[in-house]
C-alpha cells in the first residue's frame, strides 16, 4: 500500500445473516424443531463491492439514507466486523466513536469509564491515566461531574465525554458515527476546532453524519452510499447536492439546520 494512504478498501463486501424470528430463545428453537420448522434467516448485503482509498490527513464524509451500510462500513474499518469478501488495509492507530456512550458501567464515574475505555482500546494504565485530565477538561462537564456516576449525566454530557475520549486518544485515524449530534453549539465549535487540529497533524477522519452541513464544512471528500453501493464520490458540496436531489427535497435550508 502507498505510504500516503491511511485506509485502503479493496472490493469490500459484507454480508451477514440475521434471524428473522423475533425471540431468539432456546425454548423457541426447541418448539420450532419439534414442529419441524426451519429457522428463518435473511441475508443482508450491507456493503457491496466497495473500493476506496483514504489518504492521510484527509476528512472523508459518508452520507446516505438509513440502511445504506454506512455504520457497517465504519465497523469493518475499525476491525469490528470482518469482510465477507475483499480486503481492508488500515495504516495507523484507530480511535472510534461508533455507538454513543463510553459504554461501560453507568454506576461508575466518568473518570473510571474513561480509564476502562482507554484500556479496552489498548492503552496502558499509565498512558490512559496521563490523558484522563485532558479528556475530562475537554468534555468540560459541570463542576465535579467527572467523578460522579455516569447515570447522573444528561445525554449531552454523556455524548461529550464519549466524543472527548475519541478525539483525545491521539488517533491516526478517527472514525465518528453521528457523534456530533451531541453537545451544544459551543461544544460543537470546540469539536470542529479539535478535528481541524487533528487534520493538520496529518491524522485522518471518517465521519458518518446526517448533519449535511457538518459534512460540507469539515470534509474534503465525501461519498454517498445507497443500499450498500457507493453511488458517488467527490467534493462534499457536490455530493451533498446530489444526495439532496435524490431525496427529492431540493436544497431546502431546513436540511442544513440539523446541527
Amino acid at each position: 500500500m502507498p505510504d500516503d494512504l491511511a485506509i485502503r478498501i479493496e472490493d469490500l463486501s459484507i454480508k451477514y445473516k440475521i434471524n428473522v424470528d423475533t425471540k431468539r430463545t432456546l425454548k423457541n428453537a426447541v418448539m420450532r424443531a419439534s414442529k419441524g420448522e426451519r429457522v428463518r434467516m435473511r441475508t443482508v448485503e450491507a456493503v457491496k463491492h466497495l473500493t476506496l482509498d483514504v489518504p492521510h490527513g484527509s476528512v472523508l464524509g459518508i452520507v446516505g439514507a438509513n440502511g445504506a451500510g454506512k455504520s457497517t462500513l465504519m465497523r469493518s474499518i475499525a476491525g469490528i466486523l470482518p469482510p465477507t469478501e475483499g480486503r481492508i488495509i488500515v495504516n495507523g492507530k484507530i480511535s472510534t466513536l461508533l455507538a454513543l456512550g463510553v459504554g461501560f458501567n453507568p454506576a461508575l464515574s466518568g473518570r473510571d469509564n474513561i480509564i476502562l475505555g482507554g484500556l479496552a482500546s489498548g492503552l496502558s494504565r499509565e498512558e490512559i491515566e496521563s490523558k484522563t485530565d485532558q479528556i475530562a477538561e475537554f468534555a468540560d462537564l459541570p463542576d465535579g461531574f467527572i467523578d460522579m456516576p455516569v447515570r447522573t449525566y444528561s445525554s449531552g454530557m454523556y455524548g461529550r465525554v464519549a466524543f472527548s475520549v475519541a478525539v483525545n486518544m491521539t488517533p491516526d485515524i478517527l472514525l465518528l458515527d453521528e457523534a456530533l449530534s451531541a453537545g451544544d453549539a459551543s461544544f460543537k465549535e470546540k469539536s470542529f476546532t479539535r478535528m481541524r487540529e487533528l487534520c493538520e497533524e496529518a491524522r485522518t477522519i471518517v465521519i458518518v453524519s446526517h448533519a449535511l452541513a457538518t459534512i460540507s464544512e469539515l470534509c474534503d471528500t465525501a461519498i454517498w452510499m445507497h443500499k450498500g453501493n457507493m453511488l458517488a464520490k467527490g467534493k462534499p458540496e457536490e455530493i451533498v447536492d446530489q444526495y439532496l436531489k435524490f431525496l427529492d427535497v431540493g436544497t431546502l435550508p431546513s436540511n442544513f439546520e440539523d446541527m
Binding site: R87, I88, I89, N91, K93, D172
Partner: peptide, 11 residues
C-alpha cells in the same frame, strides 16, 4: 504510545 501499525482485515 502506540506503535503505529498496519492492520489488514480479510475474510
Amino acid at each position: 504510545a502506540f506503535a503505529p501499525q498496519i492492520q489488514v482485515f480479510e475474510p
